[in-house]
Design a protein around this nucleic acid. Structure first.
Lengths: 248, 248
DNA sequence: CGGAATTTTGAAATCGGTCAAATGGCGTGG
DNA sequence: CCACGCCATTTGACCGATTTCAAAATTCCG
């Protein structure tokens, strides 16, 4: 039910957990850093900001001052078009860095909202840039993360323009599966952090279509779904399905 | 017919044009730099690589060593899915930097191909990172460019998942228009660098649909199109069209 | 426990895709 | 300079996956 990741407590402290003692350090920004550099990063991080389900972390067009690392819970980001439509651009899980799409401007390019109770670490961008300047590994790592974000978005574009409803949903389930796996959680049995509505929006489908595909998958014995509780029964079949028409 | 940008010649030289004397310096990487820094950048740039139409600048999965700045001509980038389908992820014009989506890996995340005769400047990434390390403005500028790339891709996602064929094509025409404008070319009369096929692929449509929409637009008096030669007759109407259903 | 929100299910409508074929443009070579 | 042939573009008719509209069923929380 709860796919958040427990944060190992610092031995002698009930206080905020430093990067060194955070179980996410192998996923998050500190990944690239040695101990002394991690300390410096540690100093600029504002820890333990808690968001309730539905609460916004930042909103599009608001002044851009910080990126956020997800500690537990889950975040969705979305852009609002001029015609008022929302497009979800990503789901962020513990260890992910949110807000990189805003680094080209002094205002946020998207809105970030908590999908459930979520705790985050805030990292002021000006300080992050300063650190990156003196720490080549950090600079490199940020380049890496931003580039990864571009790739993810390109993958989404492919999904949206080339794949059927079934293929998109299979791909999303597998993507979530592998992300849970990387976080040492079960890759076959998890709880969706987002509503059907969010899935539909993200994948460019109608909610009804998402619902129908879920039941179809269930009837075909590919998954077992009860509400947000999902079990991947036949991963291989899902993988084949996600690939789409294989004769292209 | 030719929307390439002339490169101002260095007064006393028929040789390669340095960044200082390149008319694109206000669009390209040097944008962020003062004269002495520009010199250093200049030293690491391999100039005057020429690609013929259809020639590949780099291919997906090939070792990633350099980014490329477009000097004249036009480039398209695309990703190939596991099932062998191509999705064009961007069109790059003079002053644009190609290859940023590959900075998360040591292999290219996409393939880049020249749409017409194109000249580019090659910038080795390791040297670019070194320079960024000593030049905070350059680092900031690269963050900016990468973030912009994320935004662009998000915009594409919105287009693909929320907009009709007409809206997508109107949006593309307007986007090209503004990009030509920023390069001091006509924003109402230009030559498309890409084929209908590329437009269709980029926008997630069938070629036939693109063709139909073009003729529909022409009949409605929004544009005049003969082959790749495009004239935007009623920009306001196109803008309204690109917005999509305004009652959402 | 109750009411609202989410999810599911059904039937009908549609936009864009697919298939097929005609037309047009352009470079090459005679 | 023209004719050929190839490839890009256009046009037409039909089809199908997904959307839309409507309503029931279920779940979620306060």
């Amino acid at each position: 039910m709860n796919q958040s990741i427990n944060v190992r407590q610092m031995p002698n402290s009930g206080a905020k957990t430093s990067c060194q003692y955070c179980s996410l350090s192998n996923l998050c920004l500190p990944l690239a850093l040695d101990n002394s550099d991690m300390k410096k990063l540690d100093d600029v991080v504002n820890r333990d900001r808690i968001l309730n389900r539905g609460e916004q972390m930042f909103t599009q067009s608001a002044p851009f001052r910080s990126c956020f690392a997800v500690k537990s819970g889950a975040i969705k980001t979305s852009v609002i078009t001029e015609s008022g439509e929302e497009q979800i651009t990503g789901f962020f899980m513990p260890g992910d860095l949110v807000g990189l799409d805003s680094m080209s401007d002094d205002t946020h390019a998207s809105t970030a909202k908590a999908l459930e109770r979520t705790s985050v670490c805030e990292i002021p961008v000006d300080q992050l840039e300063n650190l990156a300047h003196v720490m080549p590994d950090l600079q490199h790592h940020i380049f890496h993360l931003m580039s990864q974000e571009i790739r993810n978005s390109h993958q989404l574009s492919v999904l949206l323009s080339k794949n059927t409803a079934e293929e998109r949903i299979a791909a999303l389930l597998l993507s979530l599966s592998s992300r849970f796996h990387r976080r040492k959680l079960s890759s076959t049995h998890f709880s969706l952090p987002m509503a059907r509505n969010d899935i539909a929006n993200f994948l460019g489908l109608a909610v009804e279509t998402v619902s129908r595909v879920f039941t179809r998958f269930q009837n075909q014995g590919l998954i077992r779904a009860r509400g947000r509780d999902i079990e991947l029964v036949n991963i291989e079949a899902l993988q084949i399905m996600a690939l789409g028409n294989p004769q292209a």
